[in-house]
Design a binder for these strands. Structure first.
Lengths: 219, 219
DNA sequence: ATAAGTCTGTTGTTTTTACAACAAAAGGGA
DNA sequence: TCCCTTTTGTTGTAAAAACAACAGACTTAT
């Protein structure tokens, strides 16, 4: 538990909460920690969950495979970020996406009902955490909308420009690395990998970008 | 004010709040109401807002026009639904979408700072509303993800099937009407209108659906 | 070090979409 | 009612993407 505190302190949901209160919270919310090997699922489409998750280490993809096996990567979860909360809070609806570890990972699980109901120990920080959760959710909403603006673009080149320039902005530099390989980037932008690879090279030939593996520079 | 109470009672954010408390809330949160003509903007990309909005009557589209004038309709707001809250809560970031009235509408504005800070009158319902807001946001998140699954589909036909079958599910019947005309549906699904219109007719010829204007039936 | 597996780039073909232009149908005032 | 505007359907062409197949580079494990 102790070794996870440093990560939890960095999360939006525990922003402004003292280390002691975070400690109290983890017992109050029945917090558990679990390790996942690369490729293992944290939860799957169709399941019902009543805990929300925070990524302690590793990396996780939120994705969805359709009937024909086409994969769509909805978002990439980074360390200290939360996931699964939408389904945990409204616990009555089945999860419609998969959460899969893309590298060996550790995940913290928090009981959302215990958070939302009045604490018998009258923990004063419940409300603070709920407010933080609210803020975290608005950020999530914004990044979902951001993603929508990327894949709403009509051509692969426009999608790439939209995504890459957004990454540059987030990274604060025109040189940055992305958390996807080519197949994953294609699944994220909802395009064909080889066509996208082809388009990336054309953009390089046109003098728009340079890249090497996951490292990109916008020119 | 009185005439709006019936709508406010139906919103997720005031779910379980008594009418008297809603009354108190509207004064406590500096609530204002404003009318918009069809085509008028409630807010625009680039603005900063510190109030979140609830649609009292009419209809509103959340949309984004890019540099080249391509319109993307992100979502359709219905009466009693909330919008703009993501930007109001994290008030420091500029709005990156437009909210436009698609018919004559009335909108309620709530001051989000007053909601989030401790009320000098110690309104007991602040926390209840914040919890409701949390739930509303998770629903919103889910519908954004739902929309992502639609437009992640590769072909226009798949996008239409994904959207229409979801509408049928929401409506609880294989006959339903949609809140978009053809151009709006195309902007929502990020495809070309004429190509989509063409595909709809092919689907009808293939015996998948029948339709008349906005009324659809899945076969 | 080597072999097996993965990732990336490349090419040609087929399918699909975007675009443009127009006709028909529906709706809204004067 | 008639005219004007908006909406929807239709068609042909050009552009783009999906798909399939493969070669070379890079990783990883033994």
């Amino acid at each position: 538990m102790k070794k996870y505190i440093d990560i939890l302190k960095r999360t939006t949901m525990f922003c402004g909460i003292s280390q002691n209160d975070i400690d109290a919270m983890t017992t109050c919310l029945n917090t558990s920690f679990k390790d996942f090997k690369k490729g293992e699922y944290i939860f799957r489409q169709g399941e019902y969950i009543d805990h929300f998750c925070v990524l302690i280490s590793g990396s996780v993809h939120i994705q969805s495979d359709d009937y024909w096996g086409n994969r769509s990567i909805i978002s990439e979860v980074r360390v200290a970020e939360m996931f699964g909360e939408s389904y945990a809070v409204s616990g009555s609806s089945a999860v419609m996406i998969d959460a899969v570890a893309t590298s060996d990972s550790t995940v913290a699980f928090f009981n959302v009902k215990k958070l939302m109901t009045v604490c018998p120990h009258a923990c004063g920080f419940h409300n603070a955490v709920i407010q933080n959760l609210l803020i975290a959710l608005t950020h999530k909403n914004q990044s979902l909308m951001q993603k929508l603006t990327h894949i709403s673009k009509r051509t692969t080149r426009e999608k790439l420009i939209s995504y890459l320039s957004n990454q540059a902005k987030l990274f604060g530099s025109n040189s940055f690395s992305i958390p996807f390989n080519r197949q994953q980037l294609a699944d994220f932008l909802s395009v064909d990998r080889s066509a996208m690879s082809n388009e990336l090279c054309k953009m390089r030939d046109d003098g728009l970008i340079i890249f090497d593996r996951n490292n990109f520079t916008l020119l």
